[in-house]
Amino acid sequence: MKNDSTSKFIDRSFECILLICVAVSVLTSASVIALLGKESISFFTEVSLSDFLFGTRWEPLLEPKRFGVLPLVAGTLFIVFGSVLIALPAGLLVAVYLSEYSPKRLREVLKPIIEVLAGVPTVVYGFFALSFVTPTLKAVFPTTEIFNALSGAVVVGIMILPMISSLCDDAFKAIPNSLREGGYAVGATKYEMVTRILIPASGVRIGAALILAVSRAIGETMAVTLAAGATPKLFVNPLESIQTMTAYIVQVSLGDTPAGGIEYQTCFAVGTLLFLMTLTLNIFGAKLMKRMPVGLSS
């Protein structure tokens, strides 16, 4: 058969082409690590690691320059805690409603609607924070500044809520019905079944959802850049302006910083910290997510 050698040749080349495409992803990760590593090393030859990690003032664009990253970390952590405080209980209750209470047809309508929230671009949340949430906060707390941490936390909370509710919903679905029936058989109400059986049994995966949501909140950029301002502060007042790690990188990018300068490198130093935090959380979260629910592991 004449065509056969062609066919065999295509067979081999096809696999090679595919493998080259796989290499793109591997190369992407490698470049991220190489790039962040390289720029961080040149940054840390000029600024000591302990000044960076433990310094309490972040003033890299002023003279004298100070490179203490803690104020940016504090800003980021406030956004993380604030948003999780809103999104975790809310997301959990939504997930309970969807998986345990809602009629099937209602659920089929509600799920995509809630997923829309996850698809709204973050710049839109930033605008919403600035033009709706902040004025609302101001009506309650008159001292609220135009840029304030609380408004940022609220919109990031709204953003990560769908992620938490959908991951928890998946976790509840993985719990076999027999466990629920076991609860009802001993006379538990639905409330008791949910709080004493369902939530404890899915505990690990709820934890994983929480971790992944935290990672998302840490990396969130545009909403907090627009809503929370550009004032690095170690001690956060929720009603005042702050700056997160991500917002700082955007701030520098909007200015015209020359490549290779120390301001340019600060972006990569902050980026490295951001990368390490999210990577750790993502790996940990993914590991937890794979675990079987408590008591069902074989």
Binding site: S25, V32, I218, T246, F268
Partner: peptide, 16 residues
């Protein structure tokens, strides 16, 4: 590696 790339903050892609 791919799962981690999917979870990497978009701003890091910007730096890259």
């Amino acid at each position: 590696n791919i799962a981690n790339l999917a979870g990497m903050p978009s701003i890091i892609y910007g730096l890259l």
